[in-house]
Design a protein around this nucleic acid. Structure first.
Lengths: 224, 224
DNA sequence: ACAAAAGTGTTGACTTTACACCCATGG
DNA sequence: CCATGGGTGTAAAGTCAACACTTTTGT
């Protein structure tokens, strides 16, 4: 039977999530510091080994909570990673997810059973990461950038709505480029993703800005 | 250690590929018939268990060759599947790929060590599939449709070039819709993906059509 | 009253869509 | 000579990119 075959023995699955946030126009990702070998003392993305009794997404969410205390976030699978030597301990394939949350609304656990620290790192100031997590993080960012234009993936960054200047700054942070204000507004409003609340909120100006929120329904597009 | 923990024991990785072709305007996928339990006698996509000494893509290619005889094709990872009960034998997570080839240029093995048959099935006439392969196939088709417009993913369908009427029929088969001939040509030519050879070839008409081929370089696009 | 950000419209360039006629070849 | 699919152009609508001035508020 299979278990006796060395070709298949001792395989496992990692579920890894790159959790992003944007603070004052700076895109950051949550990293945790490993307490144990391998890669003891290195920073890595939240994640760990999948249990037999849980689906992939369930496992990813459990790992996020175990390593950071963050519960119940929306995550989206984007790619799997399986280089033979990506883990030095045994053969592990990683199924990777991204999540995006408002960091000011969660309290992260600094220390847990398997980690000695946790923090938000600006994406242009990432330390060397354990395992293949630098590669995973790079792909995660690319995926995030490709999705923010036409989806409501930023929804959970703004649980209490957002003003247009505010969300534009977020777009600019994630895409790492400036966008014309008038064109940005026209585009975002035309996508049918967001709607006006009747409230206003102050952001950077003295004049209060209109408050918007993402609609509950999603819409996709085709080319032909 | 890990191996003694029932939460992690006996996990494995499937590498599964949905191989598509288009024959006379009909999109088809390669299925193989299982020789053994579980799902003995059921049709499934090509694939199987990943070895410890191979990367994901290598394993997917080996499985394709073992189950169909097809060698060295281009494949692209699109999603992973990990429902707890997706395999009745042990906990398996599937990393899924798509491939697309010209079926007339390969000879598929009907019977192998683990399969009793292999054949191309039109995508609207798929029998019930073993494991979660119906779900994987559905996602594979969606992925393929999302990619053909702006990439050269069809390249390997036309190793000897193609005429515009010919490739348009392929687009229509995969997207399952009619496209205006003049607009299709303008768009495809404008994408800078294909180039004129100086030859012609007959397709459906009596008048020979110009022969094109995909360029070797790829180009992608952004929104903002 | 002024500083600072919020809010708004128009024009030209480009892209997309819809649509009809001539061309080359085989029979 | 005619039937069949191959090949082409144009106009109208829509989208995208560039650009400057007015409004609201706090101080």
């Amino acid at each position: 039977m299979r278990k006796s075959n060395a070709l298949y023995k001792n395989q496992g699955i990692h579920v890894i999530t790159a959790i992003f946030t944007v603070e004052q126009g700076v895109t950051k990702v949550l990293l945790v510091k490993r307490k144990n070998e391998p890669y003891k003392g290195d920073w890595i993305l939240t994640g760990g080994a999948l249990y037999n009794n849980e689906d992939l997404e369930t496992g990813a969410l459990r790992e996020i909570e175990e390593k950071s205390g963050i519960k119940n976030i929306d995550i989206e699978q984007f790619k799997s990673f399986g280089r033979v030597d990506r883990s030095p301990v045994m053969r592990m394939v990683a199924v990777a997810y991204i999540g995006i949350i408002d960091s000011s609304r969660v309290k992260i656990l600094r220390e847990t059973t398997n980690t000695t620290n946790a923090d938000w790192f600006p994406i242009d100031k990432i330390p060397g990461l354990g395992f293949d997590h630098e590669e995973i993080l790079n792909e995660a960012l690319k995926y995030l950038q490709s999705k923010i234009i036409t989806t409501d993936i930023l929804k959970s960054l703004f649980p209490n709505g957002f003003t247009l200047p505010e969300i534009q700054k977020t777009y600019e942070a994630i895409l790492n480029k400036k966008i014309d204000r008038r064109n940005f507004r026209k585009k975002l409003l035309s996508l049918d993703l967001i709607e006006d609340t009747l409230e206003t909120r102050k952001f950077e100006g003295k004049k209060p800005a209109k408050l918007y929120k993402f609609k509950s329904t999603i819409k996709n597009k085709n080319v032909f």
